[in-house]
Write a protein that binds this DNA or RNA. Structure first.
Length: 286
DNA sequence: ATGTCAAAAAGGTTTTGA
């Protein structure tokens, strides 16, 4: 099962990049953030084209800002919009949707930006993360938190730690909130796969930042242990940040091996019942 | 020039958010 997350920075503007990307990468589950559309407008824009590709869609949108979605072609059950108990700013914002897809509780998350440390928006971010932790804690054991966390977990996740001192995304309270979330048993599967590589998911549009690879890793896929143990690949699709009309974020893609209990998808028959493969010479009986 | 992009209200540009 291939799961991806992508902050598209307006799904309306990104249609010419999103549809070819779906066709090329063939993700089974896609978490989108910053769709910036109401659910009605999203469905009018993409409903038919996603259905054609076999995706069911769970939406938590609003006009103009924010907006998240989950696309799935491996089932989409028990959809929950929002984070129970989370604050608004001051009204609730469209920042979370969860669904069970292929046996995994998938969360598409757009964590508040925080703007300035110690601002109202920053406090909102921290409260929102605390509420998210409580929801995940009460949830099932097979879970993936996917999305734009607006936090760089460590200094290795920003191009120049000195340039970010005193700015949001890197402060100790934000990192502590992320650590508390991960303390529920979640694995940062991209960092675990690439422990000492330069890996970014976001590059500012300005000043040729992408071209110089001056970015941040703020889009994360956090998997509970049973899911993390199935990770076959985990990577950032930098190609999607190139070319004409990209988002300022690249997608993150994680491939999961089949669940060990085999309740995901069709059971492959054992080799003995499948007969010889083409081109394989069997010993001849005499 | 915060070397850009996107949305919306206004307005043919400015404000807000990232």
């Amino acid at each position: 099962m291939r799961v991806a997350t992508w902050n598209v920075n307006s799904v309306k503007q990104r249609v010419p990049r999103l549809l070819p990307w779906l066709d090329q990468r063939q993700p089974d589950v896609v978490c989108l953030q910053e769709t910036k559309l109401t659910d009605v407008a999203f469905t009018e824009l993409l409903g038919a084209q996603l259905a054609e590709r076999g995706y069911e869609v769970a939406l938590a949108g609003q006009a103009q800002w924010n907006g998240v979605a989950i696309l799935s072609r491996v089932g989409l059950d028990d959809v929950v919009v929002g984070v129970e108990g989370a604050p608004g700013f001051p009204d609730p914002e469209a920042r979370a949707v969860a669904a069970t897809c292929g046996g995994v509780r998938v969360h598409s998350l757009y964590v508040p930006n925080g703007r300035e440390p110690d601002s109202d928006h920053y406090r909102y971010k921290l409260s929102w993360l605390a509420a998210l932790r409580d929801v995940v804690k009460a949830g099932p054991g097979e879970a993936m938190l996917c999305g734009d966390m607006n936090i760089a977990p460590t200094d290795a996740d920003v191009f120049d730690p000195a340039a970010y001192v005193g700015q949001t995304h890197v402060t100790a309270p934000e990192r502590a909130a992320l650590t508390e979330l991960q303390a529920l048993g979640l694995h940062d599967v991209v960092r675990e796969r690439w422990p000492s590589e330069r890996v970014f998911t976001y590059w500012d549009y300005r000043a040729g930042m992408f071209h110089q690879d001056l970015g941040m890793r703020i889009d994360l896929m956090l998997a509970s242990a049973p899911v993390a143990g199935r990770v076959a690949a985990a990577w950032v699709d930098r190609h999607a940040r190139k070319g004409t009309g990209p988002s300022d974020h690249a997608p993150v893609i994680v491939d999961l091996d089949e669940a060990p209990d085999g309740d995901i998808g069709p059971v492959v028959p054992p080799p003995s019942s499948r007969g010889p493969r083409k081109g394989v010479k069997l010993p001849q009986a005499k």
